[in-house]
């Protein structure tokens, strides 16, 4: 089989039951994507396939031979960081770091979805939504962080999305349950 990952072509001969996640981690040495559950429940394995975020543990590698796949390794490297990677470091958007590659890939996909006008569960309108803190939190809720760095993750994403500083707490609180 052949794959295009982070702009590079790879050949691999793997068991047909191999997930896209295991292909990367076990056969191509791309261990940046993590396995937290292998069942689509945690988001640690999030990759970008043709620009869209997916849970790579839920998808068989064999289905992706003609796709453009981007993993955390392709998003940015030390010395050439993606703005989200940089923001996660400065905002301490992690603790143990195990969810982090998935969070960052997911955030890239999420910001694109939002830009295209896709609504979320908390969107006021089906056609255009402001990227509020509530929107970021809702749209990032497929990525579990057991260390619960969520407030810092939101800070990092908001900054990169160009939405300025954190909302005052009291104001943000009023939007929850209202």
């Amino acid at each position: 089989m052949h794959f295009t990952i982070n702009g590079q072509r790879h050949e691999a001969d793997v068991d047909l039951r191999t997930s896209l996640l295991d292909l990367c981690r076990e056969h191509l040495g791309l261990t940046g994507s993590k396995k937290g559950c292998d069942h689509g429940q945690c988001g640690a394995c999030t990759m970008l396939v043709n620009g869209r975020r997916i849970n790579a543990c839920l998808s068989l590698a064999v289905m992706h031979q003609d796709d453009e796949i981007v993993t955390i390794e392709g998003l940015g490297q030390v010395g050439n960081l993606h703005p989200l990677q940089d923001a996660f470091v400065r905002h301490d958007g992690y603790q143990c770091g195990y969810c982090t590659p998935g969070q960052i890939c997911s955030a890239v996909g999420m910001l694109d979805e939002q830009k295209k006008g896709w609504p979320s569960y908390v969107s006021e309108s089906l056609t255009d939504s402001e990227l509020t803190d509530a929107e970021i939190s809702e749209r990032m809720s497929g990525n579990i962080c057991r260390c619960a760095a969520y407030p810092n993750i939101v800070d990092a994403i908001r900054e990169v999305a160009g939405k300025g500083d954190r909302q005052p707490v009291l104001e943000a609180a009023k939007e929850i349950g209202a």
Binding site: Q41, A134, S137, E138, I153, Q167, V169, A173
Partner: peptide, 14 residues
């Protein structure tokens, strides 16, 4: 994680 619910991003305010 599907059935045992740890906090997700949307559960946690600032």
């Amino acid at each position: 994680f599907a059935e045992y619910h740890v906090a997700t991003n949307a559960d946690v305010p600032q």
